[in-house]
């Protein structure tokens, strides 16, 4: 598949931005006082959300795994909105919903505290697409842990039965909290699950931006053209603990070092350098641009007020 240079560079810019944004959020969390309740870092897994977003329009529906919600800037949110959302600020001043993570106009229906439960909610957007007969799609990226929840199974059954325009994607970062995916999945290729539902399944190296882009594109195009649901599994690795402070006693010795060697960012940069699409100078310039953007966005985000009591009560019903 021929991918236009503009698209390759857009994904590079977004991948680099996502890495620096993740680092910035970690810095904000460690500094304290920002309003960010906790942090579940997504470092090492950014290639999947970035490759998915590169295939989507603003009016498509998208759910990312909670630890990589910050990559929603690649779906059109501003960096300020992302940082503000992570820090529980109110974005009303920007003419946006309190949390831009919940904004159906941007194709975002938030996430729940019990991952996997939101999959059928997003499936509902695919029903709206079917009823309105538009060419939008819905993509649900979920972790290998949550992917076993009952509502995910029910959603896959229903999506198949109704031939809905949705791509389910399991981002296998090898751990559901501390439990190894190998303990849960008793097949070599997780995408074999798709066979049980009667739709296509495909596994891709989720740390390879180009490969992921191509596989995801194929299934999104299929859904957009009435081909129905499918399952993509992206193999990746969580380079940080489940939560900040996680002692990570569950990792076999040396495993993390092997995966650092497969870090998607340097890997993609090397590829683009080899292809002659990118130069070292470009990377350096982009780094300094992103640095400035990040500082500005952090400043604007942290200047926003915390979510207000009035806003919280707005959809309350009956007496309080």
């Amino acid at each position: 598949m021929e991918i236009a240079n503009d698209k390759l560079l857009e994904m590079h810019r977004n991948l680099l931005t996502s890495r620096r944004l993740g680092e910035k959020l970690y810095e904000i969390f460690c500094a304290g006082g920002s309003g960010m309740p906790w942090i579940h870092r997504g470092i090492g897994e950014e290639a999947i959300p970035i490759a998915v977003c590169a295939n989507l329009r603003k009016d498509d529906y998208l759910k990312l795994t909670f630890r990589l919600d910050y990559c929603l800037f690649a779906k059109g949110l501003s960096l300020t909105e992302v940082i503000a959302s992570e820090c529980m600020r109110d974005c009303s001043e920007l003419g946006r919903p309190r949390s831009p993570y919940f904004d159906p106009d941007f194709g975002l229906l938030a996430h729940t505290g019990a991952g996997g439960e939101e999959i059928p909610i997003y499936l509902g957007s695919a029903i709206s697409i079917m009823l309105k007969k538009t060419d939008q799609v819905c993509v649900c990226v979920m972790g290998d842990g949550f992917a076993s929840r009952g509502p995910v199974h029910e959603s896959m059954v229903m999506a198949a039965s109704w031939n809905l325009p949705i791509v389910f994607m399991i981002q296998n970062n090898q751990y559901g909290m501390g439990t190894s995916a190998k303990k849960i999945y008793k097949m070599k290729d997780i995408s074999d699950r798709a066979k049980a539902y009667g739709f296509p399944g495909e596994t891709v190296d989720g740390n390879d931006v180009i490969a992921t882009y191509e596989v995801v594109k194929k299934h999104i195009d299929r859904a957009r053209n009435g081909g129905g649901p499918s399952l993509v599994v992206g193999e990746t690795y969580r380079l940080a603990g489940h939560y900040e402070g996680d002692p990570q006693i569950y990792r076999p010795k040396g495993e993390i070092d092997e995966w650092w060697k497969k870090d998607p960012l340097p890997r993609y940069q090397k590829r683009l350098l080899e292809m002659g699409v990118l130069t070292e100078k470009d990377i350096a310039e982009l780094e300094s641009t992103i640095k400035v953007q990040m500082e500005d966005a952090t400043k604007s985000a942290l200047a926003l007020p915390f979510a207000s009591y009035e806003n919280h009560l707005k959809t309350a019903i009956d007496e309080l």
Partner: peptide, 9 residues
């Protein structure tokens, strides 16, 4: 839950 998602969209 699909009812909810559809109602939002």
């Amino acid at each position: 839950a699909t009812g909810m998602g559809a109602a939002l969209t």
